[in-house]
Design a binder for these strands. Structure first.
Lengths: 234, 234
DNA sequence: TGTACATCAGTGAACGCGCGTTCACTGATGTAC
DNA sequence: TGTACATCAGTGAACGCGCGTTCACTGATGTAC
């Protein structure tokens, strides 16, 4: 009944984390596809077989890394949400800045979430599909808040949802049990897809040759987008 | 002095293309990282060593595939440009639709251009950097044309370049010798990064669960964007 | 047109390598009395 | 606190595999006279 950890438990947890850290390091060096159990084992000065005490297989390791990434992004956004000061729009801006900052600071994790799938690895879909949503929920929640604030004045063409999409979005909200309006979800998707493009191009260095300071470019475009949505900038 | 091809030359060219096709097939099956000379050889019922008659190394093969992808995208955009009917705005729309259509029809090629780098492969940078630009030039050329047409009425906030970016863009134009105005380049980058996000999310199936028909979503968002730029829709 | 020679596409074996995974094992840590 | 036993982290060898690349070779195709 004692919840105290034995030395063994502590060490086990340490090793478990160390394996993931080593795997992450491999990815940082050679891309998300470059995970190898033998490589990790060598780096940790243990036998490759030992890793099977911690992960059932290479796939299980990768799944754990992907889930960690999802959670880290979710955590970062939620923390930004709670830390942010000011009115709803200012807080939304803070969270969206965090989104990019996190992607740039953790390119490997961002790729695990949004990049090419890893060859020969197939994620259990029941785990990752809801995980994509988690960070997203923070953002659309904040957008919803903005829409109810005094800083929102509906502005064409983003004052309403394109008719072709309305039904689908409403269904999605019902199905997933979001507590947001369809318009907030719509603006969330629009914003997400716009900003995603900037981040992806930045991550692979396609944007910098043209715009130079991509952080600034992101900030400027984000502000333009939000004011197009009808949100008054502070 | 005869420019006629011998049987040997013809067969060589066929085999050269067949190797690339087989490599492409491998990528389609297992992602861009899944190219293996032995695998290709097996698929072609030849020995792995024979491939070295055609490519100096695995890296050289991949470089050829990447260049092919760049050229294919460039060709597709240029052909769309020449085929398109109507005024400048209509033609720009046609080209931008082609951009997405090509990406969706050739996801592997699109990933070779814009996706994760391939592990252990390093592209010779002098080849790929200008190649990214080629397709882009078609688009900014058309935007320039739009700006000079009667279908353009400057519209805030896209009527002018954010001051922080102006200098950089002008330098870029000078340096690369583009024959477009800084504003066209700016709108090109903005449009590119926005649409890129949609395409990337669609390619990895992140968008469809929310918006359903992603082709339609793309079309709608593209039209909204262009009219925000001040271009009159037909 | 026929012959001698040069070219070169393709072969098959070999190299050294790293991979994921399994298995019977050892020895340190933890538990029950 | 001390002892007997159970747990389990980690080992080391082995499995069968596929990889990129090299090398000396064969034999078909092309060229020059």
């Amino acid at each position: 009944m004692d919840s105290s950890k034995t030395r063994r438990d502590v060490r086990r947890e340490e090793t478990y984390q160390a394996i993931k850290a080593a795997a992450h390091q491999q990815m940082a060096a050679g891309g998300t596809a470059a995970v190898s159990l033998r490589g990790i084992a060598a780096h940790m000065r243990m036998s490759a077989a030992a890793i099977y005490r911690y992960f059932e297989s290479r796939d299980a390791l990768i799944t754990a890394l992907i889930l960690d990434s999802f959670n880290a992004l979710g955590d970062a956004l939620e923390q930004a949400h709670h830390t942010a000061q000011g009115n709803a729009v200012q807080r939304l801006i803070a969270v969206l800045e965090t989104y990019r900052a996190w992607a740039v600071a953790h390119p490997i994790d961002f790729q695990l979430i949004y990049g090419n799938p890893i060859p020969d690895y197939h994620a259990p879909p029941e785990l990752t599909v809801p995980a994509v949503i988690r960070g997203f929920v923070v953002i659309i929640g904040l957008i919803e808040e903005c829409l109810h604030s005094t800083h929102y004045t509906p502005r064409a063409p983003y004052a309403e949802i394109p008719p072709s999409m309305r039904e689908r979005l409403e269904a999605r909200i019902q199905q997933d049990g979001y507590t947001v309006s369809p318009l907030a979800l719509y603006l969330g998707v629009v914003g997400w897809s716009q900003l995603h493009g900037i981040i992806m191009l930045e991550l692979f260095n396609h944007l910098q040759p043209i715009v130079g300071d991509s952080a600034q470019y992101y900030t400027v475009q984000m502000h333009l987008m939000l004011s197009a949505f009808g949100l008054t900038m502070p």
